[in-house]
Design a protein around this nucleic acid. Structure first.
Lengths: 361, 361
DNA sequence: CCCCAATGCTAATGGGGATTAGCTGCTAAT
DNA sequence: ATTAGCAGCTAATCCCCATTAGCATTGGGG
C-alpha cells in the first residue's frame, strides 16, 4: 500500500512483472486474430499478472492509439435541462442504457457542452472518448452532422435524418406508416373530410414524414383537406373556424399542444370531441399542458428507438470491415458507404378523442 | 478535401503554419501563468492560425498528457433496471447531470457491469475511465468501498456512509434532523406516545440516522415508544394491535409501504388516519403501492443530493493538493486524509396523515 | 546438412499534446 | 567591456497504448 493516489499499473508494469514486453501485453489484451501469435502459456501468465494487479487500459491512450474503449457517447443537440426536455429525452436514454448494458458498453453523456451545443467546438474532441455516439435532437445542426459524418466518426442518429451528400445511419420511428394508418382509420369510421394541422414550420423531418403518411392515405373517394401550418397557438381559433366552414370532421394534430387548443376551441363553442370533431394526436407532446385528456393517436416508441439505435451502432462498430477510426482505410466505402437505417413501428393510443362523424352517429 | 476521414489539424500543423514550435502552440492554448512567457504578437499569430484552421485539441491526447478527462463516473451498486430502480435513481442522476454540465464535466454511466455489480472485478477497472466517480446504492458492498478508498481513487458516496478505517467522502440527506423535527412536531400536536417502525433490518445507515433523530427528539415529559423492526409486511397487523394496546397515537414509518399497510389495518378496524392514528412516512418509498394517499413526512432531496455530490467530487478533484493520480504527491494527506462530507436538508410533505391525537380534537 | 517456413516474441514507431530544462538574444548594471 | 538577468521560445521527454517489421528459435523437408 503506497501513500498518495495509487498509480495504476500500465502495460509496461505488467510486462515487467510477467517478464515479457509491453507489446506482448497489448497483444494479449486485444486478442487479435492478426499475424502475431502468443503462446497459451505466455498469454495465461500475462493475464494472471493483469488480474492480480487490477490492470486497466488507459482509455485516453487507447483511443489515441486507435483502440476501443467499450464506451458509447450520447449527444443531444438541445440542452436536456431545464427539465422540460427531460421527459422527452429520458425514455430514449432508458432504452439506450438497457441495450448498452446488455452489450457490455458503458454510456458517456455529453452534457458539458453547456449552452453552446456545438459538436465542433469543444465537443468534437470530446466525442472521441467514446467509440461511437448516438445523436439526438429535434432540431440538430445539419452542417455539424455532415461534418461529423465526413470525419469518419461512427454514429447513429436517433430520429429520421436525411442530409446532403452521403447518407448517415439513423433509427427512426415510422411516422409515415403510423400516420397513414390513423388517417385510414378515420376514413373507415366514415369521415370524409380529414385535415392535417401543425404549429411551427413543417420542415423538420418528423413533420415531413407524418405529412407524407397523411397524403398517402388519401383514398379515391375521400377528401383530405389541406395541410394547415400555423405559426403560433393564437391562430388555432381561426383554424377551428376554417375547419368548420370546410366541413372537416376529423383533424390530425401534429402536436398535442395543438390538439389541446382545438379541444378548448370546441368547448368554447359548446361542441364536443369526438362527437363534433375527432382529434388525433401525432405524438409530439412538446409544450403540452397534459390536461389529462386521453388522446387518440400514435405513441412514439422512444425507448425502443434508443435501444435499436444502440444496437445498430454497436453492430457498426463491431463489424469487421469498419476498422478503428484512426486506421483510416479510405477506400472502405462499402455499398452505400456503410450507413444503415432502421425503422421502428409506432404504437397507438386508443384514447377517447376519435369517433364516427356526427351524421353517422 | 481529401478522400476519407478529414484529418483535423494538430498542434504541429498549426505550429508549422504559424512558424513556431508545437510547444509554443500548446503554451498559447493553455494560457499558463507559469514560467514560460509568450509575446503578445506571437500569441496573436498562433491564435489567428488556430481560428483560421478550426483547430480543436484532441481530448484523448490532452488527457493522456495531462491526466484528466473531465469525466465523472456514476456507479450504482444495484442494477438500475428493470425499471423499479429507475424511479429511485433518476432524480439523483438528474442532479448530477445538471451540476456536471455547469462544471464542464461529462457523465460516464457504468451500467455494463451487468448482473455482477462488483466494482473490483471488471468494474474497478472501468472506473478509471473517469477522473472520479459518484457511488450510489442503498446496500453497497462495504468492503469494496473500503478497497476503493484505499486504492486512492477519488469518489464521493451519495448517501451516508461510515466505513471501517479512514472515512470516505459522502453527501447525505439529513435524515436525523428531519426525523427529529417531525417527531417534535408530533409532540407539539399533543401526542404523548409516539412509536417508530420499520420493515427490514435497521442496520443500514439511513435507517440508523432516522432512528437517531427519533431518539433525540424525546423530550422530558413525553414518551417515545420503542422502535419496532418487522421482518415482513405480514407482521404489520400484529404491530398495529400492539400500538393500540400501548396507547400510541402517532407512528413514524420508515417505509411508505409500511405506512400504507398501517393505513389498511386502520381501515379494516374502522379507524381513521389521522384521527385515530397519525402516520408519518420517512421517505423510503421502496416497493410502495403509491395508492394516492398524500402522506405527511419527509422528502428525500435526491436531486439536490446528486448535485451536491457532484460539486463535492469536482472540488476534491480540482483541489490543488490532490494532484492527478499519476503525479503522486505522497505527502498530501490533509487533515482527515481529505475525506469530506456534506449534509442536505430534507424537505417536508405536509400531507394529510397527521393530526392532533383524538383526545384533543 | 542446408534452407525454408512456421512460431513466438520484441524493438521501434507514432498518435497529439503538456511540460520543463535550457538555449538565444537583448538590455541594464557593474 | 563584462556579465548578470530576463524575455521569448524550442528541443526533448513523457503520457500509455496499438501496430508492424523483423529477430531468434525450432522443426521439417529435400
Amino acid at each position: 500500500m503506497q501513500r498518495g493516489p495509487a498509480k495504476r499499473p500500465t502495460q509496461a508494469d505488467i510486462a515487467r512483472l510477467a517478464g515479457v514486453s509491453q507489446a506482448t501485453v497489448s497483444l494479449v489484451l486485444n486478442e487479435r486474430d492478426a499475424g502475431v501469435r502468443i503462446s497459451p502459456a505466455t498469454r495465461e501468465r500475462v493475464l494472471t499478472v493483469m488480474r492480480e494487479w487490477g490492470y486497466v487500459a488507459n482509455a485516453s491512450a487507447r483511443s489515441l492509439a486507435g483502440g476501443r474503449n467499450k464506451i458509447i457517447g450520447v449527444y443531444t443537440f438541445e440542452p436536456v435541462f431545464p427539465t422540460s426536455g427531460v421527459d422527452f429525452y429520458f425514455p430514449f436514454l432508458l432504452g439506450m442504457e438497457q441495450e448498452a448494458a446488455d452489450l457490455g458498453y458503458d454510456l458517456l453523456l455529453f452534457t458539458s457542452a453547456g449552452g453552446e451545443r456545438q459538436i465542433f467546438r469543444d465537443g468534437s474532441t470530446r466525442l472521441w472518448h467514446a467509440d461511437g455516439a448516438l445523436l439526438l435532437g429535434r432540431d440538430p445542426n445539419v452542417e455539424e452532422i455532415e461534418q461529423l459524418r465526413d470525419s469518419g466518426y461512427p454514429f447513429v442518429y436517433v430520429g429520421h435524418r436525411e442530409v446532403a451528400g452521403p447518407p448517415v445511419s439513423y433509427v427512426a420511428a415510422d411516422y409515415a406508416g403510423a400516420t397513414r394508418q390513423l388517417t385510414e382509420r378515420l376514413f373507415q369510421l366514415g369521415h370524409h373530410r380529414v385535415a392535417y394541422a401543425r404549429i411551427g414550420n413543417g420542415g423538420a423531418q418528423p413533420s415531413r414524414d407524418r405529412e407524407r403518411g397523411f397524403r398517402r392515405a388519401t383514398p379515391s373517394r375521400h377528401l383530405t383537406g389541406p395541410v394547415w401550418t400555423l405559426d403560433t397557438v393564437a391562430e388555432v381559433d381561426g383554424l377551428f373556424e376554417e375547419l368548420q366552414r370546410a366541413g372537416v370532421t376529423a383533424v390530425l394534430a401534429e402536436q398535442q399542444l395543438l390538439a389541446e387548443e382545438l379541444l378548448s376551441c370546441a368547448a368554447r363553442r359548446g361542441l364536443s370531441v369526438p362527437d363534433d370533431l375527432s382529434v388525433v394526436v401525432l405524438g409530439d407532446s412538446t409544450g403540452a399542458r397534459h390536461d389529462g385528456t386521453h388522446w387518440t393517436g400514435l405513441i412514439v416508441p422512444r425507448e425502443q428507438m434508443g435501444q435499436r439505435a444502440m444496437a445498430l451502432l454497436v453492430r457498426l462498430l463491431e463489424a469487421p470491415g469498419t476498422g478503428a477510426p484512426g486506421s483510416g482505410a479510405p477506400g472502405s466505402g462499402a455499398p452505400g458507404s456503410g450507413a444503415l437505417s432502421e425503422s421502428v413501428t409506432c404504437g397507438f393510443a386508443a384514447g377517447v378523442t376519435v369517433g364516427p362523424p356526427k351524421e353517422f352517429s
